[in-house]
Computed example of a mutant assay.
Amino acid sequence: MSQVMGERTADPCPRCSVEAVRRGSPTSAGGREVVGYTCDRCAHTWSRPVETDVDVYDIVRVDLPDVTLYGTVWQVRTDRIQVRGTSGAGGAWLRWVERWRVIIY
Rank of each mutant, 00 (worst) to 15 (best):
D66H: 11
E19G: 06
P14K: 01
S47V: 07
A43Y: 09
E7R: 14
G91I: 03
P12E: 02
V102I: 06
D11Q: 13
R95L: 15
R8A: 12
V76M: 00
A92L: 10
T38Y: 02
V62C: 04
S2H: 08
W46T: 07
R22G: 02
I103S: 13
C13Y: 00
T72Q: 12
D79F: 04
S25K: 11
A92E: 15
S2C: 07
Q75G: 02
Y70K: 14
C42R: 08
L94S: 15
L94K: 10
V4K: 10
A20W: 06
T9A: 11
R99Y: 04
S28G: 01
I59E: 14
V60T: 05
C39A: 06
G91S: 10
A89Y: 10
I103Q: 14
L69A: 05
G71W: 04
L64K: 09
C42F: 04
G36H: 09
V73Y: 03
V21Y: 13
P14C: 02
M1T: 09
G6N: 10
V34W: 03
D11L: 13
D58S: 01
Y57R: 15
E19W: 08
A10E: 14
G30Q: 03
G24I: 00
E98S: 12
T68F: 01
E19S: 12
R101Y: 04
V67T: 14
R101D: 04
W46M: 07
G31Y: 02
P65H: 03
I81C: 00
A20F: 05
Y37Q: 04
R95C: 06
I81P: 00
G36Q: 13
G85R: 01
A10D: 10
E19M: 08
I81Q: 04
G90L: 03
G71V: 06
V34M: 04
E19Y: 10
Q75I: 10
C39D: 01
G36M: 15
L94D: 11
R80N: 07
E7N: 13
I59C: 07
G71F: 08
A43W: 07
P49Q: 03
M5L: 15
S25A: 12
T27E: 08
R61M: 10
V34R: 04
R77D: 15
R8S: 10
V18A: 12
R61T: 13
T72A: 07
A10I: 06
W74T: 11
C16L: 07
T9H: 12
L64A: 14
C39R: 03
G24E: 00
D63F: 07
I103C: 09
D66G: 13
D55C: 11
R95W: 08
Q75E: 15
E98R: 14
V62E: 05
R23E: 15
T9N: 11
I81A: 01
A92M: 09
D66R: 14
G90M: 03
G30D: 05
W93F: 11
C42N: 00
Q75A: 14
L69R: 15
E7H: 12
S28F: 05
D53E: 13
P26F: 00
D53K: 06
H44W: 10
V73I: 09
V50Q: 00
G6C: 03
